[in-house]
Design a protein around this nucleic acid. Sequence first.
DNA 1: TTGTTTAATGAACAAATTGTTGTATAATTT
DNA 2: AAATTATACAACAATTTGTTCATTAAACAA
Lengths: 200, 200
Amino acid sequence: MEKQDLRIRRTKKALNEALLTLMEQKSFSRITIQELANEAMINRATFYLHYYDIYDLLDACIRDNMNHTMLKHIKTIRHIEDGVFYTEIFQEVVTKILKSVESNEYFFRVMFQSDCDKQLEAYLIQFGHATVMPQIERSFQKGTSKKYKNITLQLIVSTILRVISWWLTAEEREAPEKIAELIVGVVTQGPAYTIGLEID
Amino acid sequence: MEKQDLRIRRTKKALNEALLTLMEQKSFSRITIQELANEAMINRATFYLHYYDIYDLLDACIRDNMNHTMLKHIKTIRHIEDGVFYTEIFQEVVTKILKSVESNEYFFRVMFQSDCDKQLEAYLIQFGHATVMPQIERSFQKGTSKKYKNITLQLIVSTILRVISWWLTAEEREAPEKIAELIVGVVTQGPAYTIGLEID
DNA sequence: TTGTTTAATGAACAAATTGTTGTATAATTT
DNA sequence: AAATTATACAACAATTTGTTCATTAAACAA
């Protein structure tokens, strides 16, 4: 993948920034191509030179930002092996993820406040299927676990995203380590117990 | 709330059905008022007599269907009391919820396959805040649990919806009781353990 | 630096969508 | 049977969409 023309990269960057700026102001579904072009200070026809529609731009925006933050930390999985879930390693990974989220907080805040975070979740789940699943295939061989592997992935991804969304919008910002603990607790012991309810 | 004019009820019903029909065929964001009017066999101007925009119609559709299914079973909470989470009662409630989902399966399938199930989740969470929370307020008094009560509600709601979505689209349909067990497991012991992973 | 390549512009286009308005008609309600 | 009111229909301006074309300007490669 050779470097693109400087003008193309400039245009795409401007459109990415324009998208986030507009998503701050209004819900994604109300954003028009014309507004994007105005905000990015390019001609409307230029938009169609690079993107099929606004969802295409959104996907590209998500892909770029995710690849540089969360996904870096889950390319190789070390916390699941042979049916054992290693809590400590998982907590380390989640802490790293949370720190990378904080480092690009603007993107994540905008995504979560808008009405299109489903696309973000979908991208993460798709990444999990393609990259994470093959690595932990052996852990799903026995019993009913194979049947449930898809829903498990979905539940863990959505739990992490939901906690992050809540974390970023809370009144007082807690430390990534604290939030990682919370996520680990929910994933390994369930929300009810982690929250302090006595089970039974 | 007295009964509305027969013509109004007929029009609203036609629009509700038209919405679901169109959502079966294309993503929610691509549906236009004109298409809705055609499908419902009413004039386009009539739509604006009853709804502000398409989201208004969607909200009404969700409200009606939810009130007649899931929400009936969580008006009074019996499975959380004084900080104790009663597994057995929770499982009964979830089973009832799942059966009511099956009884209106068409609605839920369409909602989950479309790109607007966030609205459905939002409605459930809002209902939880208004109706469920006040009933279990006492359980959140001690420790850090009060701080986490909002995220707990979100996690439980999204877990239930996610499992239902997976359940309705799986190849072979499992019994509501089986799925209720799965949900109870995830909520009280976490996805990792429930799926069969050994924790540590 | 020069010549070549190509991205961006601006204008124009038809088609579709939106939201509103007025009057006439038809159905429902009382 | 009379009064009420929801709906249909047509028309409207404003906006959006996706595409095309010739022109201009910038980036690239030698």
